[in-house]
């Protein structure tokens, strides 16, 4: 019995190693590129032979990048907070309250989540230009909220549905109005779910490229992914590879930290909304 379990463990460690390689090889490659110096950048080695922090120095001295980083952080945090606030409210109503038009709203959220964003680029471009939102923070925040809402609503309503009905009934019996039941009993209990959803929403905002590319024109509101794509064409850098890699690493760090710290919750959040139906 003993050697058999050992063998099975070894086998599983082997399988795990493949998964780890799968996940990390492309990530470590970009880290490696960001650490290469000019001389070794083009040597094609996976591992840098003479690591340097030149690329990082370069991007952190580049006002455009710093501005883009600030944009990314600010826009994503604000969009996440608002999407979570509205999403929590809507998800609670959909999961728990009886009101007319509920099915329509669920269908609408589903529709938005399936929406090809490209279909909105032009109209949003035109509308935002007309009302002066083009190339501003709100100009990105608003679409981000709209596209984060379906995700937030689905994930959160799955969490809300797991809270026992009896708690709301008890709150009502204890003299709470529906709003008080929501605010003082249900929301505190849904906090873990709300937090998880916030992480998912943040990741989805952080990942956006298309809107950032088409609804901005200057560094005023351009986020890092879009700014990175402009590094290539820019002439300020002789060889943009290093800085691009460094910028890529910088915006990957917060995400990797989220994943490391909140693995369990992210898994729970991603799987709760979608499958249980």
């Amino acid at each position: 019995m003993q050697p058999e379990t050992t063998n099975r463990k070894l086998m599983w460690w082997g399988v795990n190693a493949i998964v780890l390689l799968y996940a990390f090889v492309p990530v470590l490659w970009i880290v490696s590129l960001s650490l290469k110096d000019d001389a070794t950048l083009n040597d094609g080695n996976y591992i840098p032979t003479s690591p340097s922090n030149d690329s990082y120095t370069a991007i952190f001295n580049n006002p455009d990048f710093l501005r883009a980083l600030m944009n990314s952080i600010g826009i994503c945090i604000i969009a996440t907070l608002i999407a979570i606030a509205f999403g929590t409210m809507a998800a609670y109503a959909i999961a728990r309250l009886d009101f007319p038009g509920k099915r329509t709203i669920v269908a609408m959220a589903l529709l938005v989540s399936m929406f090809p964003q490209i279909a909105l680029v032009t109209p949003l471009f035109k509308i935002e230009t007309a009302i002066g939102l083009f190339d501003t923070w709100p100009g990105l925040i608003i679409p981000y909220i709209a596209f984060a809402l379906p995700l937030a609503i689905y994930t959160l309503s799955a969490f809300f549905r797991e809270i026992p009905w009896d708690l709301e009934k008890a709150a009502k019996m204890d003299g709470a109005t529906p709003y008080q039941a929501f605010r003082r009993v249900i929301t505190p209990l849904a906090m873990p779910g709300i937090f998880t959803t916030a992480i998912l929403v943040f990741i989805s905002c952080w990942n956006d490229f298309l809107f950032a590319l088409s609804l901005t024109s200057t560094s005023n509101a351009r986020t890092v992914p879009a700014a990175m794509s402009y590094f290539t064409g820019a002439t300020t850098f002789e060889k943009p590879t290093g800085p691009i890699a460094a910028a890529a690493v910088v915006i990957t760090i917060p995400i990797v930290i989220f994943v490391l710290v909140f693995q369990r919750r992210i898994v729970a959040g991603l799987t709760s909304g979608a499958v249980k139906g």
């Binding site: 109503a93 929406f115 909105l120 608003i142 709209a146 929501f182």
Partner: peptide, 28 residues
């Protein structure tokens, strides 16, 4: 009270989704 609260709670989310998705697709 329940209906009223329900409509109030979904209001903002519905408004944003309509404004960003529904209206622009018609405009497109």
């Amino acid at each position: 009270a329940e209906r009223k609260l329900g409509l109030m709670l979904v209001g903002p989310a519905v408004f944003i989704m309509l404004a960003v998705a529904a209206y622009p697709i018609i405009y497109a």
